[in-house]
Design a protein around this nucleic acid. Structure first.
Length: 320
DNA sequence: GGGATTTGACCAGC
DNA sequence: GCTGGTCAAATCCC
């Protein structure tokens, strides 16, 4: 990692300590984001490959979790250098109740910029809200907000601009503001009780009961799908492959196993992005997951991922 | 019908 | 006045 060399360059003294601290956080953040990218690419490559897909999802989720924990430790007050400012990428609280002001031009310095041929696979879900022709550029610039900008007040935005006609074309992606939506954390944090409740709610919803429908609406279909996907992926990993619950034992929940979300980089994400089904008519596979058997999850990813409130965690969908 | 995208208009900084 | 960023109505698509 570059961190070591940077740390080696810095000498002693309080200023160096601050620099080191910031460098560590910067590199961890970078690693975290790259992991999200890798996860997106891996899941796309392994889509539909059952256990391999689930294993990759689980491992990369764990790598991401490790980064999150390290970031949390490094950014805790006890670790922070005495006079240091909070790191720019660690936006701890959602924006205040006031409507976020328009970004002034002075704020137009991206927190991160990268050139990639796949600007859509960064582990987060985005909604396009504008496109503009920029003078002296050949291609228009597209503006995206986090899909959760409204419901979770996430202020993360990005701009994508094609910069070359190569094959594949290259895009410059600039990221502004940090995610406060914590999408990935919620994707893997559904307690089992919650899951069974969800299944019950779904059954009730199928029966047309308004209360259950309200419950589903409140959580959001996206979260619901991500959570069920995570649980079923874990079930595949822990159970070898598709696990059949023994007849008459345990609580069995029907869990959809769709694709990891990687809709093609084009419009129309209402159905394919949240549901993770990118081909109309392609039915998600259904497996039975023995919920009781999942108690091995008592090693708790949940607690660790709760740190995700402060950091952008990789989500599962990549609508463009 | 509802959600996402498109696109012209508006606003603020330079 | 120009330019870039955002808004919001219109439109599209499932």
């Amino acid at each position: 990692m570059q961190t070591q060399s940077r740390l080696a360059v810095n000498g002693g003294g309080s200023s160096a300590s601050e620099d080191e601290h910031e460098a560590v956080i910067r590199e961890l953040t970078r690693g975290h984001e790259l992991t999200a990218q890798l996860r997106a690419e891996a899941l796309r490559a392994l889509r539909g490959q059952g256990q391999a897909e689930a294993t990759a999802a689980f491992i990369l989720q764990e790598v991401s979790r490790a980064f999150t924990v390290c970031l949390s430790i490094m950014s805790s007050p006890a670790r922070a250098p005495p006079s240091s400012q909070p790191p720019p990428t660690m936006e701890m609280a959602p924006a205040p109740a006031l409507a976020p002001p328009r970004r002034s031009r002075g704020d137009s310095i991206p927190r991160e910029q990268r050139t990639t041929s796949s600007p859509h696979s960064d582990g987060h879900q985005w909604r396009k809200y504008g496109q503009k022709r920029i003078t002296k550029t050949q291609f228009p610039r597209c503006y995206f907000k986090c899909s959760f900008h409204r419901e979770r007040n996430c202020r993360a935005t990005k701009q994508v601009q094609q910069c070359s006609n190569d094959d594949p074309p290259q895009y410059v992606v600039m990221y502004f503001n940090d995610h406060t939506c914590d999408t990935a954390a919620t994707s893997g944090m559904m307690p089992l009780d919650d899951l069974s409740g969800l299944v019950m709610a779904r059954q009730q919803a199928a029966a047309g009961q308004a209360g259950a429908r309200a419950l589903l609406d409140g959580r959001g279909v996206q979260e619901e799908h991500e959570r069920r996907l995570f649980v079923s992926s874990l079930a595949c990993v822990l159970g070898g492959h598709q696990q059949q619950s023994p007849a008459g034992s345990g609580t069995t929940a029907a869990v959809n196993v769709g694709h990891q979300q990687e809709p093609p980089p084009r419009a129309r994400t209402r159905d394919d992005a949240p549901a993770g089904v990118d081909a109309p008519g392609e039915m998600p596979r259904i497996i039975d997951v023995d919920v009781a058997g999942l108690d091995v999850m008592d090693y708790d990813v949940t607690d660790a991922l709760c740190f995700g409130d402060s950091y952008d965690l990789p989500g599962d969908g990549f609508p463009f």
